[in-house]
């Protein structure tokens, strides 16, 4: 009996440590639990990217299930997902963009707004335009409020303006079918 326990304890420890490390091997450390989940989208007042006179606030989410896609022309993965997002929007999914630019550093203001608009127009003409409109997160404050760590990231927002999913990384057929579509359909049915 005693001998068994002498072997059993190290083996149990080894198995536990192995499981822990094995999980770490395949887990994505960037996939953090979002703190905004199941909360109303934070308040904001931000301009339209193309018509800076138009100011949006969280009422844009009311009454419709929305995918809010955080992106920028400088982001390589965003360019990869644009064609698929365009396909989705053609199927009737409402997608709005939360645009932020790397080079408009609020402390220096390197890039002018017309330049950004030009870049965006070119990019969307090339790869497809899935966006109903783009909210321009000028100082990236709203991204910060949402806990965005980079681009692309996508938020699924329900008809009451509550954030129901935060997806980090690109959206492709696999991600859409396995992760987003089930909840999206459920929210649409409500």
């Amino acid at each position: 009996m005693k001998k068994i326990s002498i072997f059993l304890i190290p083996i149990t420890l080894f198995v536990l440590v192995s499981i822990f490390l094995y999980k770490g091997l395949y887990g994505d450390p960037r996939q953090l639990d979002s703190t905004v989940l199941n909360k109303p989208a934070p308040d904001f007042a931000l301009p339209d990217l193309m018509q800076p006179d138009v100011i949006y606030d969280p009422s844009i989410f009311e009454g419709q299930v929305t995918l809010m896609n955080v992106w920028g022309v400088w982001c390589v993965t965003c360019a990869v997902e644009l064609p698929y997002l365009t396909e989705l929007s053609q199927q009737g999914v409402r997608i709005i963009g939360l645009y932020y630019d790397q080079d408009t550093d609020p402390d220096f203001g390197i890039k002018s707004i017309p330049t950004i608009q030009q870049e965006v127009t070119t990019k969307l003409a090339q790869l497809g335009n899935p966006y109903e409109f783009n909210v321009f997160d000028v100082k990236r404050d709203y991204s910060l409020d949402l806990g965005v760590t980079g681009a692309p990231e996508t938020f699924l927002i329900d008809k009451q303006g509550v954030i129901r999913m935060h997806h980090i990384g690109d959206i492709n057929t696999r991600v859409w079918r396995s992760k987003i579509a089930p909840l999206y359909n459920e929210l649409m049915a409500q």
Partner: peptide, 21 residues
Amino acid sequence: PQCQNQNIADSDAMIAHDLRR
């Protein structure tokens, strides 16, 4: 949050810039 083994003082990621600001 982007480059997870650095603090925001060390990191040059955009998010670190934003957090510092």
